[in-house]
Amino acid sequence: MSGFGEIAVSALICLGAFFLFVGSFGLAKLPDLMRRLHGPTKATTLGIGALLIASMLYFILEDEIVSLHELLITTFLFLTAPVTALMVAKAHILLDKEDQEKLPPTGREVGWSVLDAPQTHEAKKS
């Protein structure tokens, strides 16, 4: 493998590991759940992304195999990370009475869907 490729792969591995560490560090350090949520959802996606790009580059340069499984994992994680964050945030809002009072008004006549019953499709039409 050429020197430049080796440096690029090493740099991407270190970058990915750094972001993964920062994400978990934020999870451990920050004081409440809504703030903790920011660390893992962002830092880990780029962390995993950089690691998977490094892995793809490594297999292309070292074995001359173009492996596309990494792309699949990256896409999957980028699609699922917002869903997990949303579900955790909703569970938190449902359980935490203090944060419920801090929520801003919706600007509509109904409340937030976690606390207020969602309108059904039929009710919206009428």
Partner: peptide, 24 residues
Amino acid sequence: MPTRILALDTLTINAIALVVLIGI
């Protein structure tokens, strides 16, 4: 409870990273 769920999720993501790294 939600904090523990979030931590478990982050733990899985770190495990994925470890598996990929072992592959390299």
